[in-house]
Structures are given as C-alpha cells and as structure tokens.
Design a protein around this nucleic acid. Structure first.
Lengths: 102, 102
DNA sequence: TCCATGTATTCGTCTATCCGAATACATACA
DNA sequence: TGTATGTATTCGGATAGACGAATACATGGA
C-alpha cells in the first residue's frame, strides 16, 4: 500500500468525526484556547484536547501558547474549503435521494 | 448534534479507508464490475463488495447490472476532485514538515 | 430445472476509536 | 516554593470497523 495513500486516508479519517469537523469550523470562525472551545461547543475539556491532538498530528491546526493557555487555530483555510465542498456534494446528493444512509 | 454534520462526518469517514480511496480512483479511471476491481486492486472479492456497499450507501458510486455482473461507477467526478484537493493539501503539508504523523 | 458465473452477506475475531473520570503536567505569579 | 489556572495524558470499558472464511443469493443459459 502506497504511503501517500495511507496518509491520504489518514487525513480523511481525521475528518470522519463530526466533533472534529465542528472544532475545525469553530477555529475557522476564530482561534480559541482549549477551554473556550470546550465551553463554546459544550464538550468536556479532555475530549476537546484529544480531538485537537488528532488534528494537530495531521497539521490541520497549529498552536500558540499564551502563558498557561494554548490557543489553537486553523493551519490553512484550504481545509475549510475542502469541507465546504464536501458539504455541497452532500447537499446535491440529498437533493437527488433523500434516503441516504437510511 | 446537527444531522447534516453527522452526514458530513459520515462522508469523510467513508473516505477514511485507504482501500476505498483506491477503489474510487480505480472506478474513476473506468467503471468496472466487482471481480475486475478485485483483480485489479488485488483484494478478495468480498472485501471489495463490502467497501463498495459503504460507498454506495453514501451515494458515491452507482451500479448497473449486466446479467449476473454488476458494474460500478463513480456517481460524480466531484468526489474525485475533492480527493485531489486533499492530496494537494497533504503534499503542501509534507513540504512544510516531513514528520507528519510520526 | 440445473448449473455456471458473479455478487452480497453472515459469522467470529481482532483491532482501532471514543468516551468519562481521574490525574499528571505546564506556566505564571505571589 | 507554593498555588491557581489551563492543558494533556492515562486508564478501563464500550462501541464500531475491518478482515478471512464460508456461504447465501441473483442472473442467464443449457
């Protein structure tokens, strides 16, 4: 199996969790530190931290430390553009058939 | 949790398996029936069939029957465009840092 | 109807992922 | 150095996903 394909799949897999998508959109809206994210998205702090680690390992988000707080932000808006295109693809699909996944 | 976001994650998750990415690219190259896919990609036929089911449930591939054989094809080239953009994103990332995921 | 071809599903098992709870770690400041 | 604040990790259990092997199902023709 080609390594590039493995990484390719890894990127997609990281996007496979709805919470991580939610986090990416929230960070695109504006960079935040972990607790602020946890509060805004109504998730426990460790959960947010774990998801952020996954995104960071794939270089989708980057960090900057301000004292004890760590501010996360989107590495590149391109990932959001890709997510938006997926959403459009999904919408088109739903228009054609409303029984997707059911 | 928003249902659209769940579906959004579901689409991404379906792309999260390298073999499914491989299958999508192969079908984009040209439509094939299951056995031809299995042979070309060197996977057992049940494995290919299972992955195709996942892609079909998400409307990424469609089928047409010719006798006992079932020919699968890409529903829309858009999904390939999205995969290509991901690949580009991945390449850019690898240029910046070569230790991704390590 | 029986058989050949091709496809889909089931079963059992293994692995990966996710979560809550608890806790360890890091930083800044008194 | 001790404490407060904020972040990351570990642990155990539950759940989902993927695989090989075997088998069931579907179609068309003899």
């Amino acid at each position: 199996m080609d390594e590039l394909r493995l990484l390719h799949g890894n990127i997609c897999q990281a996007l496979g969790d709805p919470k991580r998508i939610q986090i990416l959109y929230a960070l695109h809206d504006e960079p935040r530190h972990v607790s602020a994210l946890a509060c805004a998205l109504d998730m426990p702090q460790p959960t947010v931290s774990r998801h952020l680690r996954v995104l960071r390992q794939r270089a989708m988000v980057k960090t900057e430390r301000y004292g004890p707080a760590v501010v996360y932000s989107i590495t590149s808006p391109k990932i959001i553009a890709i997510l938006d295109e997926m959403r459009n693809f999904l919408r088109q699909t739903l228009e054609r058939q409303s029984n997707i996944l059911s």
